[in-house]
Design a protein around this nucleic acid. Structure first.
Length: 842
RNA sequence: GGGCGAUUAGCUCAGUCUGGCUAGAGCGCUCGCCUCACACGCGAGAGGUCACUGGUUCAAGUCCAGUAUCGCCCACCA
């Protein structure tokens, strides 16, 4: 092959050139003919396409790509799919804002609907089907943006292996897995208290909660004993006095011991309430006695359940207090008091209650302001309420010790990188306090594939759901009729009703190994890629994605879904602050790629240690760019000599020494990669490469230009060196290494073998020659520099003093040293310590 | 309240698992150099109480205990 080495190599434009070439040549296409032990499979995180692009996405994906490229070069067939997480609330929310629409399932489909150019305010209501069409359209656009970014970054993904969590294949997989969970008793539905977001009007799961510090106020409120004496409780939620079912204190609390078993009356509403004892009551909190409501917090739920208390719900799904007077309020005064808070939101009702209680004399003093943690849906704006609702659950060990233990054991079987991340999983599983709530009262998601018989009274029979055949999946029970029924029987006595809910997005994305590996429709492929080798992901979704994936695999396959979980660090802004939209410090990758180039951004990402929080650092990107340029220029130098080199011609001791040191670098880099430590691998290679260009290239330059037998040795050694460095850098800097490869080699460097140390060691080089010659030339440079002389300035003589064996190494590089130092002669003297003295020409 | 991680040069970070010459790199800074791959470059230099306190040891940035600050995760939040 003829060489085409450009006169002025440049980085500009090489991304576009190779992106296109890799695609057209199928460089990263997965070859499914390989067997499981020849395949390295990656369970890629499907990014939320309706989220914004940010450096956090780039960081983890580039690190994964480096590992994928290493494995591919090592000879493994890499299964590297890409998915898009497009179902669920983030998309709905984006569609609502983008088009100014709201979904109203009661409306009929309008086939001619097109959204207005500008989002209208207030938003317009559209049918469920129209809404879902908009979701599909917008996510398709968003996915293009992401795919373009991934390609620009050079991710070696096989784009034929892609999926979207809302596509038919994912829906089928998700519904099938759910039905199997149901069949085995791992999934169930029940009417129970759930955490409820009043804006989204949906239940949310424990994994989606976050605490936020919110202002509140302790209200000290009097309940009354039969003799009229007050019992003071302190509450931040006086609006729930109407939902109170009991008072509770600690069984050992002497202040309240005499009250247990007696009855008190609630203020304003005059409801008779028992006083009960429970260990969860904290004598040090408030007055030590608390009201139990339906339900103000999760402690209320515990008390309600364990003490078998009645249910008195006043807060509705809308978040408002119910309009009609609850039946348990029987006094006229109570009814008129309730009328004043009926239909209000909790915060409004709270202010009203404070007024009413103050007027009645039941509020002791002023409300005392505090800030306290309040549970929010992580994507929500208002505090969660707890309401009773029928929902679907998957058992996750939160309510069963045996399962919890099995899942903890699975966590121990998994290889965590870095290993301390395993502790987060352990703590999460140990802290679970309920099963996984998977149903959501939303629209853009995978439907729960169940219908319910409607009895002759028109009531739904939730205990005997009607299920589809697996072959008919995916189904949408809101539009499809179940087996054995006609659509005309929907909602009529003796007919059926479809479950209107969709599954939580994690209920689908917890199946990414099964989805990507085509568990449901291609068992041959699945057998070749599952269980997968690697699950890369962020630390914040260990409790969701990682845990849920492990759970589903444990249920379905009785094994871990992957052998290794690599957890990347958190990305911080250049000031080392967390990036967030609200702070306005989010950095997006595309402008950085435009400015520094893909290689530079990749270099930055690859320098982030596994699991280590990393700041966005433009300085590091500049260094990456500099490295890429250096590779181009060094390659131009190396390839500027003879086309036909003979590796048997590598006879010079210095050249062989260089190859020996390179074998060390290969060994260390390989060892680092085997431990998934890509950052260590690039560090080792980079450090060695700069020494190669600074010392070795300078030392052999003269000989290389002079030619002859000694020159031929240099030419060949330089080419071997370049060849090895290109391979070592290829996982990190795929564009520039491929570019240089194309100047003189056939095929793609990314399909070439990873270098082995054996063939380099076979040249029999002695590490000491290059090592010592490097020290001598450095010392001469230093003396020139101190004399403020040019490096090209002539040297009359160099005197090297050293122990005999060191002198022997240095002598083997004598002519190269003289040429590089521009020295007439080198005088060797035996001595204890290495000393170099140069006499500069005047 | 509990847990995990971090704290090393002005800045960004290696090094700590496995204790051992004078603690490293790059950026920035200072000085010098157009040396036939690269001035988007090359050479050299200055710069550190390894957060703090105590302990183990012949020897501690490294191991142990505690403290402080920062970040993250978790927690029943009356």
């Amino acid at each position: 092959m003829t060489r085409t080495v450009p006169d002025k190599p440049a980085l500009e434009g090489i991304e576009a050139k190779w992106i296109e070439r890799w695609e057209s040549e199928g460089t990263y296409r997965f070859d499914r003919s390989k067997s499981r032990d020849q395949i390295f499979s990656i369970d890629t995180p499907p990014p939320t396409v309706s989220g914004s692009l940010h450096m956090g996405s780039v960081f983890g994906f580039v690190q994964t790509d480096a590992i994928a490229r290493y494995q591919r070069m090592k000879g493994m067939e890499v299964f590297y799919p890409m998915g898009w997480d497009d179902n669920g609330l983030p998309t709905e929310r984006r569609v609502q804002n983008y088009y100014g629409v709201r979904c109203d399932p009661t409306l009929h489909y309008d086939p001619d609907f097109t959204p207005p150019d500008q989002p209208p305010d207030p938003p317009i209501s559209i049918s469920r089907r129209n809404f879902i069409e908009l979701c599909h359209g917008l996510t398709a656009e968003d996915e293009k943006v992401f795919e373009n970014l991934w390609r620009t970054l050079g991710l070696s993904v096989d784009w034929d292996q892609s999926y979207a969590t809302i596509d038919e294949h994912c829906q089928r997989t998700s519904q099938r897995a759910f039905l199997r969970n149901l069949e085995r008793g791992e999934a169930y539905s029940q009417e129970a208290p759930v955490l409820w977001d009043v804006d989204f009007k949906s239940a949310v799961a424990q994994a989606e909660l976050e605490d936020r510090e919110r202002p509140g106020a302790y209200h000290r409120i009097a309940f009354h004993r039969p003799d009229g004496d007050p019992v003071y409780i302190e509450t931040t939620r006086p609006e729930l006095v109407s939902a109170c079912v009991a008072l509770v204190a600690h069984p050992d609390d002497d202040r309240y011991r005499t009250l247990f078993g007696t009855t008190v009356t609630s203020p304003l509403f005059g409801v008779q309430l028992p006083v009960v004892a429970h260990e969860l009551a904290d004598p040090d909190k408030g007055s030590g006695i608390a009201m139990i409501c339906t339900w103000g917090d999760t402690a209320d739920v515990t008390w309600w359940r364990e003490l078998d208390l009645p249910t008195r719900a006043v807060i509705q799904q809308s978040g408002r207090l119910r309009e009609d007077t609850p039946e348990w309020i029987e006094t006229d005064a109570g009814k008129s008091a309730y009328a004043q808070i009926a239909g209000l939101y909790p915060n409004q009702a709270q202010r009203k209650m404070a007024e009413l209680l103050a007027d009645s004399g039941d509020l002791d003093g002023e409300p005392r302001p505090i800030t306290h943690p309040v549970k929010f849906f992580e994507k929500g704006d208002r505090p969660l309420e707890i309401i009773s609702s029928r929902q679907w659950y998957i058992r996750n060990g939160g309510r069963g010790e045996d399962l919890r233990h099995e899942l903890l054991t699975r966590g121990e079987e998994l290889n965590w990188i870095p290993d301390f991340m395993g502790v987060r999983y352990k703590h999460w599983v140990e802290g679970l306090n309920g099963d996984w709530l998977i149903s959501r009262q939303r629209f853009f998601g995978v439907s729960l594939p169940v219908w319910y018989p409607v009895d002759s009274e028109g009531e739904l029979d939730f205990e005997h759901p009607i299920l589809p055949d697996e072959v008919s999946l995916p189904v949408d029970p809101t539009t499809d009729a179940p087996p054995g029924y006609e659509e005309s029987q929907r909602g009529v006595p003796g007919g059926f009703a479809g479950d209107p809910d969709v599954m939580d997005t994690w209920a689908t994305s917890s199946l990414t190994p099964q989805i990507a590996g085509h568990w449901d429709d291609d068992p041959d492929l699945f057998g070749r890629v599952f269980p997968m080798d690697m699950r890369p992901q962020g630390p914040e979704i260990i409790r969701t994605w990682l845990f849920a994936t492990l759970l589903r695999s444990h249920y379905e396959h009785g094994m871990l879904p992957w052998s290794h979980a690599t957890i990347n660090g958190w990305i911080l802004d250049p000031e080392r602050k967390k990036m967030s939209k609200s702070k306005g410090n989010v950095i997006t990758p595309i402008p950085l790629i435009d400015e520094y180039g893909s290689e530079a951004v990749r270099y930055w990402a690859c320098n982030g240690r596994p699991g280590t929080d990393t700041a966005v650092d433009f300085g590091v990107m500049k260094i990456g760019r500099r490295l890429a340029l250096k590779i181009l220029n060094a390659a131009r130098f190396v390839l500027g000599f003879a086309d036909d080199v003979d590796f048997a011609a590598i006879t010079e001791p210095l050249d062989r020494s260089m190859l020996a040191s390179l074998s060390e670098v290969v060994a260390q880099s390989t060892a680092a990669f085997e431990k998934y430590d890509y950052a260590r691998a690039i560090e080792i290679t980079e450090k060695s490469f700069w020494t190669w260009t600074d010392d070795y290239l300078e030392l052999v330059k003269g000989r290389a230009y002079d030619g002859g037998v000694a020159g031929a040795s240099a030419h060949a050694a330089l080419q071997v060196g370049l060849d090895v460095y290109l391979r070592l850098f290829a996982p990190f800097l795929p564009f520039v290494t491929e570019e240089v490869w194309s100047w003189w080699r056939e095929g793609s460097v990314h399909r070439e073998g990873w270098p082995g140390g054996a063939e380099l060691r076979a040249f029999g080089g002695d590490l000491g020659v290059l090592g010592m010659a490097g020290l001598v030339i450095a010392s001469v440079r230093k003396q020139k520099s101190e004399a403020k002389a040019s490096m090209a300035s002539e040297v009359e003589s160099v005197t090297v003093t050293a122990p005999a064996e060191v002198l022997d190494w240095i002598r083997q590089a004598d002519s190269d040293l003289r040429a590089a130092a521009r020295a007439e002669v080198i005088v060797y003297r035996e001595g204890e310590k290495l000393a170099v003295e140069a006499v500069l020409a005047q």
